[in-house]
Design a protein around this nucleic acid. Structure first.
Lengths: 210, 210
DNA sequence: GAGAATAGTGACAGCCGCTGACAATTGACA
DNA sequence: TGTCAATTGTCAGCGGCTGTCACTATTCTC
């Protein structure tokens, strides 16, 4: 279906991601040099930087895939849902597809451990947060479009999406550090955290929420 | 009150921050080299890296000051406030003090323009987001402590603070790019965004919120 | 199916951020 | 004033990243 050239490119790209993940997870991100990655794939360093803008990029390639899929999944939702329900439903719907897509490039277990490396490595965490912010802005634009609002003037889409993504982030961090390394667990934690959002904003925390 | 040595250190540090800000704002962050900064202050490059862990650090020094002051101000709040009210009140209380503290190092106008540079420069935005996350975690710990909750097991403090900080971030970005360059305006925007949080989470957006 | 157009790669040189090590200088304090 | 400790400058060097150019591999065209 696709040309030989294209397939070759895809293969080196995937190989770079896989090799990088293995090295990052075993040695740590900072301790791994780009040269080590390229040596293990047998390409030149220059080639690496033709596939990835920088060293962070290869570490966050799968996270980026997540963002793209999530955004696409949002398009498919029916228009009569309330905004918050749309986000929640998109989460549920895109979750398992995502696992399969990841597995085609690196084993899921490796991906999970990479997630922890990201949380623990300042440079990666920073880049990851910025990437999440890009997704957030896309989501806000789409939510506004669906609701027929102008995303520039009406703050509600941005505010809602910001809160939603923030909670997703907290859940992700909690899961990466303390949960068990399964996708289902991650989804469960995330859903639970999102359900805590509205109650947490209310004045009194008298009842148990742990 | 303090020794000569201490004062000298403070002065070089402030001079570095000021020089860096001027260069970043006029030339852009990436286009400015550390050598340019140190030349304009007449210290060696090595000295620069003894004051700042990296180039990003000097650009975010004032943002860091903000975070520290905000966190300290949280301590002073009465314990009988609801968590959300505490955060809101801390915001109001610490705002103007902050302007004064900044002005001692760089002119407020320069600081405002630096804020825009941060939003526009990927590397700086990333570092800024990570720094904000550190503040977020501190705040969550303190909110949990005040409420007598275990921050590990109870998600509510983290969720509340995450949502609050996320909205503050959206407001800050909106103000930096589109608002006028005054502190009062920034506070006004931020307050307004926070007031939109709870309504934005509700199901229907029928009423006008712009 | 041969040759032209194009895409992808490797090799090399070089800038810049950042660090370790050691020597030189400067302020603190008796 | 002399000693000690803190601060700084100098130098060498690593690693991330980029521009350039020649070379190779594929796709396209006739």
């Amino acid at each position: 279906m696709t040309g030989l050239r294209e397939r070759k490119k895809q293969r080196t790209r995937d190989a770079l991601i896989l090799a990088a993940h293995e090295l990052f997870v075993t040695q740590g991100y900072e301790a791994t040099t780009v040269d080590q990655i390229t040596e293990s794939v047998e390409v030149s360093q220059r080639t690496f930087f033709r596939y990835f803008a920088n060293k962070e990029d290869v570490a966050l390639a799968l996270q980026k895939m997540f963002a793209e899929r999530f955004f696409e999944a949002l398009h498919g939702r029916p228009l009569d849902e309330a905004p918050m329900d749309t986000l929640r439903a998109t989460l549920d719907a895109s979750w398992s597809d995502l696992g399969a897509a990841v597995e085609e490039i690196v084993p899921l277990d490796l991906h999970m451990r990479m997630w922890q490396v990201i949380e623990v490595t300042p440079a990666l965490l920073a880049a990851h947060l910025r990437q999440s912010l890009v997704l957030e802005e896309q989501l806000a634009g789409e939510i506004a479009r669906r609701a027929g609002l102008d995303p520039e003037s009406d703050p509600r889409p941005r505010v809602l999406v910001a809160a939603f993504c923030a909670v997703m982030g907290v859940a992700g961090r909690h899961w990466a550090m303390r949960g068990n390394a399964s996708l289902e667990e991650a989804l469960k934690v995330t859903r639970s955290y999102i359900d805590h959002l509205t109650p947490a904003l209310s004045a009194n925390w008298g009842d148990g929420g742990a």
